[in-house]
Amino acid sequence: MPLSLEEYQVAQMYMVMKMQQQNTTGTEGVEVLENRPFEDDEFGKGQYTLKLYRLQSKAPSWLTTFAPADALVMQEEAWNSYPRCKSVIKCPYFTRFRLTIETIHKADNGLSENVHGLSKTELATREVETIDIASDTRDYWSYIIGRNSIDFSIFQSAMTGRGPLLDGWQERCNPVMTAYKLVTIDVPYWGFGSRLEQALLAGERALFLESHRNSFAWIDEWFGLSVEVLRELERQSDTSLNEKLGQHCLDESARGRIG
């Protein structure tokens, strides 16, 4: 990303809010059950969120032949202790399904090795893929998730002057940072587990690309905002999302009983 570590934190918060608003209607989208500070021995201090993603219209047609419409209701728990984050996604319908995304953000151009500290056995099975936000890759999932039309080969930020992103921009860009994501998926279902696994991985890949493209494309909207301002905007956005879905934010006592 053509951003500093500090800028990326704000960019990510803004992007998540805006994409959630764009993809939430009265029937599907994102419901925020919890959004609060946390502190534990594993991550230290950070922000914890618990969300439900209602994604019925995005289900592949082959999946809907044997699963009900609510099969793509996903529950996500996330621990954001930036620059380290972790998300765990489960599906109430496929109870043995589990998708874990661990992210470490570093101020480099993507060439660091084994930032997650994997063992030799884990490294032997790891598949590395580089996602370039300036690429114009299109597939089934890029259309399902959405695709902004900005051409980064000609885009330039009015506020920062950054861009365009031409071939090899990662080696020339300053500032620059990378989000190293470790995706682990477990779909232990005979007959369709492998197909579902590949579909979910392709979906995550498309989501990573689109969300990070948006983070830079919207730079003139979020640049100069503080994390504190974004937290307040986030609180307002959470309320708006739940109202769109006909839900209400839980009070503090109810939040304490979840999980």
Rank of each mutant, 00 (worst) to 15 (best):
L3N: 07
L3Y: 14
L5E: 12
V10Q: 07
V10T: 12
M13A: 12
M13E: 12
Q20Y: 06
Q21G: 07
Q22V: 06
E28F: 05
E31R: 11
E31D: 11
L33C: 11
N35L: 10
R36D: 01
E39T: 08
D40R: 05
E42C: 06
G44F: 02
G46R: 12
G46V: 13
G46K: 11
Y48L: 09
T49K: 09
T49H: 03
L50Q: 05
L50D: 01
Y53V: 04
R54A: 00
L55A: 13
Q56R: 09
Q56N: 10
S57E: 09
P60A: 06
S61N: 07
S61A: 12
S61Q: 11
S61V: 13
W62T: 09
W62I: 14
T64C: 09
V73S: 02
A78V: 06
W79C: 10
Y82L: 07
K86Y: 09
V88D: 02
C91F: 01
C91S: 10
Y93F: 14
Y93A: 04
F97A: 01
L99W: 03
T100C: 04
I101C: 12
I101F: 06
E102N: 09
H105R: 02
K106H: 09
L111Y: 08
S112K: 01
S112Q: 07
E113Q: 09
V115P: 14
L118F: 06
S119M: 08
L123I: 06
T125N: 14
E129M: 11
T130S: 13
I131K: 03
A134N: 05
S135T: 15
S135V: 12
S135F: 14
T137L: 03
D139V: 03
S142N: 15
I145F: 00
N148A: 07
S149M: 11
S149N: 12
I150E: 07
F152E: 01
S153W: 09
A158I: 03
M159W: 00
T160M: 07
P164S: 12
L165R: 02
D167Q: 08
D167F: 01
G168T: 12
E171Q: 15
R172D: 04
N174V: 05
Y180H: 08
K181C: 13
T184P: 00
I185D: 11
D186G: 10
V187P: 02
P188M: 00
G191A: 10
G191E: 13
G191D: 12
G191H: 12
F192V: 13
G193N: 10
E197Q: 08
E197D: 04
Q198A: 15
Q198E: 13
A199M: 07
L201K: 06
G203S: 11
L207F: 11
L207I: 13
L207Y: 08
E210W: 04
E210M: 11
S211Q: 04
S211K: 02
S215V: 02
S215M: 06
D220S: 00
W222N: 02
W222C: 04
F223A: 02
L225G: 03
S226F: 01
V227D: 00
V227H: 01
V229Q: 15
R231L: 08
R235C: 03
Q236L: 14
S237V: 14
D238T: 08
N242S: 05
L250E: 01
L250K: 03
L250M: 05
E252Y: 01
S253D: 14
A254E: 15
R255M: 12
